[in-house]
């Protein structure tokens, strides 16, 4: 379970030469000035409770606060105010570039990731078998990761993150690189995980990814929750909003050209 109460987060800005038009744009958080210092308010007064077994999709424009929300949930970023309670262990999959050494093989990178998570050697051995089976990388598991495509890295990363048997899984923009067969396997894996009461949050710009993996959607806009609820309704509203926004931008540009 994840309980978020009045959660706000600000990124401090250390540069002084900021344009004075402080305020809000459609993209990114709100730029604010306080005591001669600038901040980007990435999350503002969020309140939500995600129960065990939730499969939540995070959608929103760039800079709407999706990644920041995942990182404060994971405890990577400290909240500026408010409180987040996470029950259970967390596993994160935030970037397929997390593999620390592209010159090492897939197996060696899994060993390093296991070391980051403090896993014992025998547990890492089991995870390697699990990831090899899930990722279908075969001989590539013994090849340097630099020879992998983005999709192959996704398979490796997703395979590792979902093999950890943690209570909460947070994923940011990683699944999108996979192919159709990966989608199918990943969806089965996520369904299996939910049998052990896992909470899964997936941030993605792909509506099809969200529809495939999630049952509810949280739409983020300028650091606050725009909407939360049924996957079909919210994604439809979001797509409508994005299309309307695109049309307005195009007509504004046409007006300027005339």
């Amino acid at each position: 379970m994840i309980k978020i109460e009045n959660a706000s987060f600000r990124y401090p800005v250390f540069q002084k030469n900021i344009r004075p038009d402080v305020g809000m744009s459609e993209i990114g958080g709100t730029i604010i000035k306080e005591k001669n210092r600038y901040y980007v308010e990435a999350l503002k007064d969020l309140n939500i409770t995600l129960k065990n077994g939730s499969r939540v999709g995070l959608i929103g424009l760039n800079g709407s606060g999706k990644t920041t929300l995942l990182k404060v949930c994971a405890g990577i970023l400290p909240l500026t105010s408010g409180k987040i309670t996470v029950q259970g262990d967390i596993s994160t999959l935030f970037a397929s570039t997390i593999f620390s050494n592209p010159h090492l093989t897939g197996v060696d990178n899994i060993k390093l990731l296991g070391a980051i998570c403090g896993l014992r050697r025998r547990d890492v051995k089991i995870i390697i078998e699990d990831v090899t089976e899930f990722s279908e990388l075969g001989a590539f598991m013994d090849m340097p990761v630099r020879t992998y495509s983005a999709g192959m890295r996704s398979r490796l990363g997703f395979g590792f993150a979902t093999s950890l048997k943690r209570d909460v899984l947070l994923i940011d923009e990683v699944i999108g690189a996979g192919d159709l067969s990966f989608y199918q396997k990943a969806r089965d894996k996520v369904t299996d995980m939910l049998d052990t009461a896992s909470t899964i949050i997936i941030a993605s710009h792909s509506v099809s990814v969200i529809k495939t993996f999630c049952t509810t959607v949280l739409w983020m806009r300028n650091g606050h929750i725009e909407a939360y609820g049924d996957v079909d309704k919210i994604t439809a509203d979001y797509v409508k909003y994005v299309k309307k926004r695109g049309a307005e931008k195009r007509s504004a540009i046409k007006g300027q050209i005339k």
Partner: peptide
Amino acid sequence: LKIIQNVPI
């Protein structure tokens, strides 16, 4: 930074 930003340790 890559690890600090991605893994909660």
